[in-house]
């Protein structure tokens, strides 16, 4: 029994070291900007860079729009598929997995071909149009995660009976989704939202090829011509991503409880 536990711990520690050692090394390196002593100079340099604020702000805003559009598209879609067209579920699940197998590069070249300035819908003809296109691309990219988060949320409540209960009391479809379904899967939506945010903040390929001032291309740009700042930025983006993941965990505790007291 004890031997089993030893090997389990050994595998766990090796796995943990594989992730943690490079992280510690990166963090340690990010503190060595000042000769002979540790300092946060690299972080100060990053935060003092106006491009950091501009690109991070831009990506955060695009991330916010991505979440809003994603929720508006995915929540009603999952709701109606579960409620009225359950036979369509395998197909929808397959479609939502496509962004995982189609490289972002293929996606963005497809977009550029379809929506270039000489096409019928010239999204790339203006900055706003390109931003809309970028948002659409991110909604697609985050689809597998958002869909699964929302789908799991809806599985935990009896949407069929809740819908009927609301309907018989006079509610229409919009009122049902807005007042009953959405609040009951809010935690699941927020989980999907944080995953989406984490994806958007670090995304490079699409933003770079659409030539938008996003955080991902900024990270790569800094990495090519600075020494210590990229390490500091890696730690910052790591903290942001893991902060978003941590929020999912925290929010899980506030999920509405559905079972009755048994006493």
């Amino acid at each position: 029994m004890k031997t089993n536990r030893f090997w389990s711990w050994l595998v766990f520690l090796l796995g943990a070291a594989y992730f943690i050692v490079p992280l510690i090394a990166t963090f340690e390196f990010s503190l060595r900007m000042r000769r002979g002593e540790y300092s946060f100079d690299a972080y100060a340099s990053v935060f003092a860079d106006p491009r950091f604020h501009a690109t991070f702000g831009y990506s955060a805003l695009i991330g916010l729009f991505t979440i809003v559009v994603g929720v508006l598209v995915i929540v009603p879609a999952v709701y109606f598929v579960r409620l009225r067209m359950p036979w369509l579920r395998p197909f929808v699940e397959f479609v939502t997995l496509l962004p995982l197998v189609i490289p972002a590069l293929v996606l963005v070249y497809g977009y550029i071909r379809l929506y270039n300035s000489s096409s019928i819908i010239p999204f790339t003809g203006s900055a706003l149009g390109t931003d809309i296109l970028l948002t659409g691309a991110y909604v697609t990219l985050a689809l597998p995660y958002m869909y699964r988060a929302v789908d799991t949320g809806m599985r935990t409540i009896d949407i069929g009976t809740l819908t009927e209960a609301a309907q018989i009391m006079g509610a229409n479809q919009v009122q049902i989704i807005w007042q009953i379904i959405l609040p009951n899967i809010l935690v699941a939506i927020l989980s999907g939202a944080f995953l989406t945010f984490a994806i958007v903040i670090g995304e490079f390929t699409i933003a770079s090829l659409l030539n938008r001032p996003a955080f991902g291309p900024y990270l790569v740009g800094i990495g090519t011509n600075r020494a210590y700042e990229p390490a500091a930025l890696a730690i910052i983006s790591f903290i942001i991503t893991w902060g978003a993941m941590g929020m999912i965990n925290v929010l899980g505790r506030f999920a509405p409880r559905t079972s009755a007291r048994t006493d």
Binding site: T161, E164, A166, I168, M169, I180, L186, R257
Partner: peptide, 20 residues
């Protein structure tokens, strides 16, 4: 008529109270 136009009340086996 749609259910929300019938002015009826209903109680379900599974209670169906809105958890939120």
């Amino acid at each position: 008529l749609k259910p929300n136009q019938r002015q009826l009340g209903m109680v379900f086996q599974a209670y169906a109270l809105f958890p939120n």
